[in-house]
């Protein structure tokens, strides 16, 4: 489980400009970073949820949590 401290770091480390150009690799939809869950969620068709590990978005379809 991630500590609060590392979640806080992740929040600060994810560059808003990087988030602007990220897209879902599955459906190519826009994505949104949910700070409280430290997860990147597809707002397009598939709604896949991508983890963020050590402040690095893991945008791999195989690693996404699927609804």
């Amino acid at each position: 489980m991630k500590s609060l401290a590392s979640s806080e770091e992740a929040k600060l480390a994810l560059d808003p400009k990087l988030l602007e150009i990220l897209a879902c690799p599955n459906c190519r939809g826009d994505v949104e970073y949910i700070e409280s869950e430290n997860v990147i969620v597809c707002r397009g068709e598939c709604h896949y949820r991508y983890p963020v590990r050590d402040d690095i978005p893991v945008m791999l379809i195989d690693e996404a949590e699927k609804p």
Partner: peptide, 9 residues
């Protein structure tokens, strides 16, 4: 970003 070159995120 960790990702696959075949499906760039």
């Amino acid at each position: 970003v960790q990702g696959n070159a075949r499906r760039l995120p």
